[in-house]
Amino acid sequence: MSIKLINIGFGNVVSANRIIAIVSPESAPIKRVIQEARDRSMLIDATYGRRTRAVIISDSDHVILSAVQPETVGQRLTNDIGDEN
């Protein structure tokens, strides 16, 4: 099994195999998920000070913030999976 990496902006990449969900940060439940991850030291902020546009939840309970739109990250993930077939 090869490791597939997805660009989440500003030269940051995450393992495609570890992604559970890519969501928008606008709703109150997602804001709570972000705060709980921050409290547990499981939050990774990859926004470089920009506005958070996507929240990536991994299977290791890490929550990753990205400044790239969720649709863009999802499209990169879909394109990457399609390339291996």
Rank of each mutant, 00 (worst) to 15 (best):
M1G: 15
M1A: 15
S2L: 14
S2A: 15
I3A: 12
I3D: 12
K4I: 14
K4C: 10
L5Q: 10
L5R: 10
L5I: 07
N7F: 01
N7K: 08
I8P: 00
F10C: 01
G11Y: 02
G11L: 01
N12A: 02
S15N: 15
S15Y: 12
N17Q: 14
R18E: 13
R18S: 14
A21Q: 13
A21C: 13
A21E: 15
A21H: 13
A21K: 14
I22K: 05
V23P: 02
S24D: 13
S24V: 08
P25D: 04
A28M: 09
A28H: 06
A28F: 03
A28Y: 02
I30L: 09
I30S: 05
K31L: 05
V33S: 09
I34P: 05
I34G: 04
E36G: 09
A37T: 04
A37S: 09
A37N: 06
R38H: 10
D39V: 07
D39P: 02
D39C: 06
D39F: 08
R40E: 13
R40Y: 08
S41N: 14
M42S: 10
L43M: 11
L43G: 08
I44S: 06
D45I: 09
A46S: 05
A46L: 01
T47V: 01
T47R: 00
Y48H: 07
R50T: 05
R51Q: 11
R51W: 05
R53N: 06
A54G: 04
V55K: 02
I57L: 12
I57Y: 04
S58G: 12
S58Q: 13
D59H: 11
D59L: 09
D59A: 11
S60L: 14
S60P: 03
D61L: 08
H62R: 09
H62K: 11
V63N: 07
V63A: 10
I64E: 00
I64C: 02
A67Y: 03
A67D: 03
V68P: 00
V68K: 00
Q69K: 08
V73R: 00
G74Y: 01
G74D: 07
G74C: 07
Q75N: 13
R76Q: 06
L77S: 04
L77W: 07
T78F: 11
N79K: 14
D80T: 13
I81F: 13
G82Q: 15
D83H: 14
E84H: 08
E84N: 11
N85G: 14
